[in-house]
Design a protein around this nucleic acid. Sequence first.
DNA 1: CGTTAGCACTCGACAATATGGAGTGCTAAC
DNA 2: GTTAGCACTCCATATTGTCGAGTGCTAACG
Lengths: 345, 345
Amino acid sequence: MSQELNERSRKILEAIIEDYIDSAEPVGSRAVTRRHQMGLSPATVRNVMADLEEMGYLLAPHTSAGRIPTEKGYRFYIDSLLRVRPLTLTERQRIEQHYHLKGRRIEDVLQEAGKVLSSISHYTGLVLAPRFTSTVFRQIEFVRLSEGRILVIFVSESGLVQNKVIETDERLAQSELEQMTNYLNLTLSGLTISEVKAKILEEMRQEKALYDRLLKKALEFSSETFGEEEGGQVYIEGAVNILEQPEFTDIERMKRLFRAFEQKSLLVELLDAAQKARGVQIFIGSESEYSEIEGCSLVTAAYTGRGGNVGTLGVIGPTRMPYNLVIPIVDYTARLVSKVLEVDS
Amino acid sequence: MSQELNERSRKILEAIIEDYIDSAEPVGSRAVTRRHQMGLSPATVRNVMADLEEMGYLLAPHTSAGRIPTEKGYRFYIDSLLRVRPLTLTERQRIEQHYHLKGRRIEDVLQEAGKVLSSISHYTGLVLAPRFTSTVFRQIEFVRLSEGRILVIFVSESGLVQNKVIETDERLAQSELEQMTNYLNLTLSGLTISEVKAKILEEMRQEKALYDRLLKKALEFSSETFGEEEGGQVYIEGAVNILEQPEFTDIERMKRLFRAFEQKSLLVELLDAAQKARGVQIFIGSESEYSEIEGCSLVTAAYTGRGGNVGTLGVIGPTRMPYNLVIPIVDYTARLVSKVLEVDS
DNA sequence: CGTTAGCACTCGACAATATGGAGTGCTAAC
DNA sequence: GTTAGCACTCCATATTGTCGAGTGCTAACG
C-alpha cells in the first residue's frame, strides 16, 4: 500500500495542493486536468486521487466534493515537491527598506521585522526576542527609587535594556549604589548571563564571611536580578491579517487562535523549539499537539547574534499557505535581522 | 415634542435599557410588564414606548420586534437614570489582590491593571501609560554600544525606564560619557521633561560659543533624546474577551475593532482626551466620530501620579454594557493604581 | 493493461415556500 | 387615561425542491 509515489501521482498531488492553496476550495479531478494540462482525462486523475486518498495524502470532505490535502499531504509536499521561488529584486528591496533607519533599538528592529513579515506575507508575523540568558553582560546600574526600592537597569552587549525593581530593608545612599555598580561592572563585564549567574554564586560562596557589607549587598542584588528566568518576549504583528483568510470565518477557531496569541506562552514554546535549527523550519498545525493552532502552520527561521542563534522569527498562517513565497520571505528577513544585530554589537 | 420625560416614561426607559443590557435582544412591551411589575398593561407600555421612540431614545429594528436603546437613550440613561452599585468587599478584594506584589515595575503594574480590568469586567482593559513628557527627570545614562552608536537610558522619578539609540560621528570614551552623565544628572535632576527640554534649549543658546566640547555634545545628545514626542504607550488586555459578546458575531465589525486595537493610535487619542477629566468618563461609540469603535463604549478614569493626572485606564466593550458594574470597577482600579504610583515615587 | 467515456448516484449550496411566534399599532370599550 | 382585542407585520426556522459539481464503478477501447 504505502509504496513510493510515482512521478504521475506526485505531479497530481502537487497540482491539487497548489490549486487548493490558491482557491481554498476542494479540488476536483476536472479542475486538475483543466488547469494543468498533463494529457490525462479526469477519470484517470480520479483513479489516482482515490489512491492518494487511500494513502492518506488527500481527503474528501464529503462524497461529492473534490479533495483537499491532509497534513500528511502538506508535509510530503513541503519535503519533496516544493520548489521555493527566490525573491525578486523588488521584493528584496521592499523588505530591506525597513531596516535602513538609523539609531534603532533592538526592540524596534525586531518589532519592525514582525511588521514587515506580516505585511509582506499577509499573515501574522512573529518574532521571539533573544533570551535574556543568551545575552552578554555589559553594564548594570542601580537607581534608588524610594525608601527600600531600587531599580536595577541592565544592559546587554547588544543594547538590550532590561529593568527590574528589587526591595531591600537596608538604607543605601546613591553613592553606595555607585560603588556597587562599579564593582559589578568590573567583575561581570563580558560574561554571558549564565556565566554571570555562576560567577555570582561562586563569589558568594567563596567570600562566605563577607567582610564588606556593600559587596555582599551587591552580590545579593545581582543574584536577585539574574535569578529569575525571563519568559521570552515575543512580538506578534498583524494578527488581524490572518482573519482575511477564509478558514477563519469560523469564529470559534479564530477565538482559539487569538487566545493563544494573547497568552503568548504557546508561541514562545514553539519559537523556542525552532531556534535550535538551521534554516527555515515549518511546523504544521497539529503536528505540535496544540489544538489552539489547529489548521495553522508556522514558518520560522532563527536569526543570529553574537552567540549563534539567539532568536526566532517567522510567520503563522493557515496550513493552506503559499510556502514557496513565504519561505523565502522568512529566510531573507532572518538573514537581514542577523546582519543588523551583528553589525550593532 | 422634546419635553421632559415624566416619571413613568423614565421608569420604562430604564427598564427597557436594563433588560436589553441583560439580554442583548429587543425588548417588547410584554417583557417590560412581566419583569418589572409596575401596574401597567402591555398596551400602556406600548404607548409610552412609541413616544420614547418618537423622541429618539428607542429604536425598533423592524416592525414587529421589541425596542432597543439608541445612543441618545444610553446617554440619557447614563446621565440621569443610572445608579452605580458600589463594589462589594469581595469584589474589592478580588481587584486588590493583584496589587500586593512587591518590587513591581510601573509597566508591570499598569499591565496588570489592564488584565484585572478585563478579567473582572469581561470586556477589554485599556491602560494608557504616563506620557514621557509628564514625568519628572531622575537620571540619565549613556552606554557606548559600538563605533558611533550610543544607548541612552533615561529613568523618570517614578521609575519608568526609557531607552534610545543615538548616533554620532564623534569618538567618545566611556569615561567621557560618564562625565557627560554627571553633568546632565546634576543639571536636570528634578525637572519635568518639558522643563528639561526648555532648559537644554536655553543652555544651548546661552553658551553659543561652547568652550567645552563634551558639554556641547551632552546637550546635543539630550536634545536628541528628549526631542521626539513619544506616542503614548497603551496596554490592551483581554481583547479576546470582547468577542464573547453577541454583537461581535459580525465578523466585519470585529475586524474593524481589532484593527483599531492593532493600530493603537485611535485608542491613545481617546484615552488621552479622557485624561483631563476627573472621575469616571464614558464615551459612547459614534459620539467620537470614529467608525472603528461604532457600537462600543469606553468607560475610563484618569489615574494620578505626582503631577496630577498622568494616565488613563478603562474598559472598552459594547455600548450595551452593565455600566452600573463597570463604572465602579474602573473607578476603584484607577484609585488603586494612583495609590500604588504615589507610594512608589 | 492502463486509460477513458459514460452513467448513476451523492451531497452541499441555494432558493423558494410554508409555519409559528413575538410584537406592534389601532380602535373601541372601560 | 388605561386596557383588551384584533389584524397585521416581520423575522426565524424548518421544509422542500432544484442545480451543479464531483465521485465511483463499469465497460469499452487502443
